[in-house]
Amino acid sequence: MTDRLKDFIENNADGFNDLEPSQDSWNKIAARIGHSEKVRNKKLRYISIVSAACIAGIAAFIIFFGKPQNQTDNFAEIPEVLEAEAYYTSQINMKKEQVYQMAGNFPELKNEMEVDLAELDTIMVELKKDLNDNVSNSEVVEAMIQNYRMKLMILEEIKSFLETKTDDQKNTTSYEL
Protein backbone atom coordinates (compact mmCIF):
# COMPACT_ATOMS: atom_id res chain seq x y z
CA MET A 1 0.00 0.00 0.00
CA THR A 2 1.43 3.39 -0.93
CA ASP A 3 1.18 6.70 0.86
CA ARG A 4 -0.36 8.95 -1.80
CA LEU A 5 0.34 12.13 0.14
CA LYS A 6 4.03 11.30 0.71
CA ASP A 7 4.43 10.29 -2.94
CA PHE A 8 2.83 13.54 -4.07
CA ILE A 9 5.14 15.62 -1.87
CA GLU A 10 8.23 13.72 -3.03
CA ASN A 11 7.26 14.13 -6.68
CA ASN A 12 6.67 17.85 -6.23
CA ALA A 13 9.58 18.63 -3.89
CA ASP A 14 10.60 21.74 -5.85
CA GLY A 15 7.23 23.32 -5.24
CA PHE A 16 7.76 22.96 -1.49
CA ASN A 17 11.19 24.63 -1.68
CA ASP A 18 10.47 27.70 -3.76
CA LEU A 19 10.96 30.45 -1.17
CA GLU A 20 14.04 32.65 -1.50
CA PRO A 21 15.75 34.44 1.39
CA SER A 22 15.89 38.23 1.11
CA GLN A 23 18.70 39.89 -0.87
CA ASP A 24 19.98 41.52 2.29
CA SER A 25 20.33 38.26 4.21
CA TRP A 26 23.95 37.56 3.19
CA ASN A 27 25.02 41.15 3.91
CA LYS A 28 23.73 40.79 7.46
CA ILE A 29 25.56 37.49 7.93
CA ALA A 30 28.77 38.91 6.41
CA ALA A 31 28.59 41.90 8.72
CA ARG A 32 28.10 39.63 11.74
CA ILE A 33 31.02 37.38 10.89
CA GLY A 34 33.16 40.46 10.07
CA HIS A 35 34.06 39.61 6.50
CA SER A 36 32.47 42.29 4.42
CA GLU A 37 34.81 44.25 2.17
CA LYS A 38 33.92 47.51 3.90
CA VAL A 39 34.55 46.06 7.34
CA ARG A 40 37.95 44.73 6.23
CA ASN A 41 39.00 48.04 4.68
CA LYS A 42 37.77 49.93 7.73
CA LYS A 43 39.77 47.56 9.93
CA LEU A 44 42.94 48.19 7.93
CA ARG A 45 42.34 51.92 8.03
CA TYR A 46 41.63 51.76 11.76
CA ILE A 47 44.88 49.88 12.47
CA SER A 48 46.91 52.40 10.52
CA ILE A 49 45.22 55.43 12.08
CA VAL A 50 45.66 54.02 15.58
CA SER A 51 49.30 53.22 14.82
CA ALA A 52 49.97 56.70 13.51
CA ALA A 53 48.12 58.27 16.44
CA CYS A 54 50.16 56.25 18.96
CA ILE A 55 53.43 57.30 17.41
CA ALA A 56 52.30 60.91 17.07
CA GLY A 57 51.47 60.78 20.77
CA ILE A 58 54.91 59.46 21.66
CA ALA A 59 56.56 62.07 19.44
CA ALA A 60 54.48 64.88 20.94
CA PHE A 61 55.35 63.72 24.44
CA ILE A 62 59.03 63.76 23.59
CA ILE A 63 58.88 67.15 21.87
CA PHE A 64 56.97 68.93 24.62
CA PHE A 65 58.03 67.16 27.80
CA GLY A 66 61.41 65.67 27.00
CA LYS A 67 64.41 67.07 28.85
CA PRO A 68 67.77 67.64 27.19
CA GLN A 69 70.25 65.04 28.28
CA ASN A 70 73.76 65.91 29.27
CA GLN A 71 75.47 63.45 27.08
CA THR A 72 77.79 63.83 24.22
CA ASP A 73 76.94 60.66 22.29
CA ASN A 74 75.27 61.29 18.97
CA PHE A 75 72.54 58.66 18.94
CA ALA A 76 72.01 59.04 15.20
CA GLU A 77 75.49 57.67 14.66
CA ILE A 78 75.44 54.83 17.19
CA PRO A 79 76.08 51.60 15.23
CA GLU A 80 73.08 49.79 16.83
CA VAL A 81 70.74 52.58 15.73
CA LEU A 82 72.16 52.59 12.21
CA GLU A 83 71.94 48.82 12.10
CA ALA A 84 68.31 48.83 13.23
CA GLU A 85 67.46 51.53 10.71
CA ALA A 86 69.10 49.58 7.87
CA TYR A 87 67.35 46.36 8.88
CA TYR A 88 63.86 47.87 9.15
CA THR A 89 64.25 49.99 6.03
CA SER A 90 65.20 46.96 3.93
CA GLN A 91 62.33 44.91 5.39
CA ILE A 92 59.84 47.73 4.73
CA ASN A 93 61.08 48.26 1.17
CA MET A 94 60.88 44.55 0.44
CA LYS A 95 57.31 44.28 1.81
CA LYS A 96 56.28 47.48 0.03
CA GLU A 97 57.55 46.08 -3.26
CA GLN A 98 55.57 42.85 -2.73
CA VAL A 99 52.40 44.77 -1.86
CA TYR A 100 52.76 47.07 -4.89
CA GLN A 101 53.04 44.07 -7.17
CA MET A 102 49.91 42.49 -5.70
CA ALA A 103 47.79 45.64 -5.35
CA GLY A 104 47.28 46.28 -9.07
CA ASN A 105 43.55 45.60 -8.86
CA PHE A 106 43.09 47.55 -5.64
CA PRO A 107 44.11 51.16 -6.40
CA GLU A 108 42.00 52.50 -3.54
CA LEU A 109 43.76 50.26 -1.04
CA LYS A 110 47.15 51.21 -2.50
CA ASN A 111 46.33 54.92 -2.10
CA GLU A 112 45.21 54.47 1.50
CA MET A 113 48.38 52.54 2.26
CA GLU A 114 50.53 55.30 0.75
CA VAL A 115 48.73 57.94 2.82
CA ASP A 116 49.26 55.92 6.01
CA LEU A 117 52.92 55.27 5.30
CA ALA A 118 53.43 58.94 4.44
CA GLU A 119 51.95 59.90 7.86
CA LEU A 120 54.44 57.59 9.53
CA ASP A 121 57.26 59.04 7.41
CA THR A 122 56.37 62.56 8.57
CA ILE A 123 56.53 61.41 12.17
CA MET A 124 59.86 59.72 11.47
CA VAL A 125 61.32 62.99 10.15
CA GLU A 126 60.32 64.70 13.42
CA LEU A 127 61.79 61.86 15.46
CA LYS A 128 65.09 62.10 13.58
CA LYS A 129 65.22 65.84 14.27
CA ASP A 130 64.73 65.09 17.98
CA LEU A 131 67.43 62.47 17.82
CA ASN A 132 69.88 64.99 16.39
CA ASP A 133 68.86 67.52 19.09
CA ASN A 134 69.74 64.95 21.78
CA VAL A 135 66.24 65.28 23.35
CA SER A 136 65.34 62.15 25.42
CA ASN A 137 67.17 60.06 22.91
CA SER A 138 66.42 56.62 24.34
CA GLU A 139 62.66 57.34 24.06
CA VAL A 140 63.13 58.74 20.56
CA VAL A 141 64.97 55.60 19.44
CA GLU A 142 62.17 53.50 20.94
CA ALA A 143 59.58 55.61 19.06
CA MET A 144 61.55 55.20 15.82
CA ILE A 145 61.60 51.42 16.23
CA GLN A 146 57.85 51.49 16.91
CA ASN A 147 57.38 53.56 13.77
CA TYR A 148 59.23 50.97 11.67
CA ARG A 149 57.25 48.14 13.26
CA MET A 150 53.96 49.91 12.60
CA LYS A 151 54.87 50.25 8.93
CA LEU A 152 55.74 46.56 8.75
CA MET A 153 52.50 45.64 10.51
CA ILE A 154 50.40 47.70 8.09
CA LEU A 155 52.22 46.23 5.08
CA GLU A 156 51.92 42.70 6.45
CA GLU A 157 48.18 43.14 7.05
CA ILE A 158 47.60 44.48 3.54
CA LYS A 159 49.75 41.73 2.03
CA SER A 160 47.81 39.02 3.80
CA PHE A 161 44.50 40.61 2.68
CA LEU A 162 45.71 40.74 -0.94
CA GLU A 163 46.93 37.14 -0.78
CA THR A 164 43.44 36.02 0.26
CA LYS A 165 41.93 38.00 -2.59
CA THR A 166 44.37 36.62 -5.17
CA ASP A 167 43.77 33.11 -3.93
CA ASP A 168 40.01 33.60 -4.24
CA GLN A 169 40.29 34.89 -7.78
CA LYS A 170 42.43 31.90 -8.83
CA ASN A 171 39.85 29.45 -7.51
CA THR A 172 36.68 31.19 -8.63
CA THR A 173 36.48 29.35 -11.96
CA SER A 174 36.96 25.95 -10.37
CA TYR A 175 34.30 26.38 -7.73
CA GLU A 176 31.72 28.45 -9.57
CA LEU A 177 28.57 26.35 -9.33
Binding site: F16, N17, L19, E20, P21, S25, I29, H35, D168, T172
Partner: peptide, 23 residues
Protein backbone atom coordinates in the same frame (compact mmCIF):
# COMPACT_ATOMS: atom_id res chain seq x y z
CA UNK B 1 37.48 32.24 7.51
CA UNK B 2 37.73 32.86 3.77
CA UNK B 3 34.89 35.26 2.99
CA UNK B 4 34.46 34.22 -0.62
CA UNK B 5 34.21 30.53 0.26
CA UNK B 6 31.71 31.32 3.01
CA UNK B 7 29.59 33.23 0.52
CA UNK B 8 29.75 30.31 -1.91
CA UNK B 9 28.51 27.94 0.79
CA UNK B 10 25.74 30.38 1.62
CA UNK B 11 24.68 30.58 -2.01
CA UNK B 12 24.64 26.80 -2.28
CA UNK B 13 22.60 26.10 0.83
CA UNK B 14 20.72 29.26 1.83
CA UNK B 15 17.58 28.60 -0.19
CA UNK B 16 17.15 25.02 1.04
CA UNK B 17 17.77 26.03 4.66
CA UNK B 18 15.45 29.01 4.35
CA UNK B 19 12.60 26.76 3.21
CA UNK B 20 13.22 24.41 6.14
CA UNK B 21 13.26 27.40 8.49
CA UNK B 22 9.98 28.62 7.09
CA UNK B 23 8.33 25.21 7.53
Amino acid sequence: GNAKAQKQLYELYAKAMFNICYR
